[in-house]
C-alpha cells in the first residue's frame, strides 16, 4: 500500500483543522494513506467534537481555540508533535472499521514507531470508561485503554478519530519531552509510523492549491466561526 507524506508548514489552528477535514474528504477511496505533520503558527488549543466550550474556559485555557471533528479531550498544541492520518477503511491496513479496532491499530503503529525512543511505551489497556472521562477537559488527563503511556503511566500520546463513510481521520498528539524528540525528528517519526502501519512506498508531497482553497472555504463556513467552535 502507498502513502502520502505531508510535512506541512505552520498554519493557524482553524486552517489546520480545515485541512485535515479536506484531506479526509478528498483522499483516494482505495490504496493510499495520508500522513500529515501539523504545525502551528502560534500555540493553540483544540477541543473535542462534543466538549463544552464553557468547561474549557473554566479550565483556564486562554489560547486561540478551535473545535475538532474528532472526539476526545482538549489538546494544547505548542511543543508537541501533532499528526493526522487519513486512511480508507475497511482496507488491507485498516481491515476492521469499528472504532476500538481502528484506535488500537493506530496506537500500536505509533507505539511501534516510538519504541526505540522510549522502550517502556505501551498501550494502557484495561477496561474502557469513556463516560467517566467526559468531564476531564485535558486529553492528557483522560484515561483510555488505547492511550500510549510511559513506564510510569504518564500519557505520552493522545489519539482521536472521525469516521466518515469508508474513511477515517486520526488526529494524534505526541509529547516530545518523554521521548526526547526535537522538531528535526518529525519526518523520521512520521516515516517510522508509516512503516509500522505497513506502508511500503511513501511519497513526500505538499498540500495542493485545490486542497488549500477547499480548506479556506471550511474556515469561513465552520472552523473560523463561533457557531462551530462554541456550539456546545
Amino acid at each position: 500500500m502507498t502513502g502520502r507524506l505531508i510535512l506541512d508548514a505552520s498554519r493557524p489552528a482553524p486552517l489546520n483543522m480545515a485541512l485535515d477535514e479536506t484531506l479526509l474528504d478528498r483522499s483516494p477511496p482505495h490504496g493510499t494513506i495520508t500522513l500529515r505533520r501539523t504545525a502551528w503558527v502560534t500555540p493553540a488549543a483544540t477541543l473535542g467534537r462534543f466538549q463544552r466550550y464553557t468547561e474549557f474556559e473554566i479550565a483556564g485555557a486562554t489560547r486561540p481555540s478551535v473545535r475538532r471533528i474528532t472526539g476526545g479531550g482538549a489538546i494544547l498544541h505548542h511543543e508537541e508533535l501533532t499528526i493526522a492520518v487519513v486512511a480508507p477503511t475497511p482496507s488491507p491496513l485498516f481491515p476492521v472499521s469499528k472504532p476500538i479496532a481502528l484506535a488500537n491499530r493506530i496506537a500500536d503503529s505509533v507505539s511501534g514507531a516510538l519504541t526505540d525512543r522510549l522502550p517502556s511505551i505501551h498501550r494502557r489497556g484495561g477496561e474502557s470508561d469513556e463516560r467517566g472521562q467526559v468531564d476531564v477537559v485535558d486529553c492528557f488527563e483522560r484515561r483510555s485503554p488505547f492511550d500510549l503511556v510511559c513506564g510510569d503511566g504518564t500519557k505520552a500520546v493522545g489519539l482521536a478519530l472521525h469516521r466518515r463513510g469508508d474513511r477515517v481521520l486520526v488526529q494524534g498528539s505526541i509529547r516530545r519531552a518523554p521521548l526526547g524528540l526535537e522538531p528535526d525528528d518529525d519526518e523520521a517519526i512520521l516515516r517510522l509510523i508509516a512503516a509500522a502501519l505497513g506502508i511500503d512506498a511513501l511519497a513526500e508531497s505538499q498540500v495542493t492549491s485545490a486542497e488549500l482553497a477547499r480548506a479556506e472555504e471550511l474556515v469561513k463556513s465552520r472552523y473560523g466561526r463561533d457557531e462551530w467552535n462554541r456550539r456546545r
Partner: peptide, 9 residues
C-alpha cells in the same frame, strides 16, 4: 455519535 474517542457519522 461519539464512542471510544471516535466520532462516527
Amino acid at each position: 455519535i461519539e464512542s471510544v474517542k471516535a466520532v462516527s457519522e
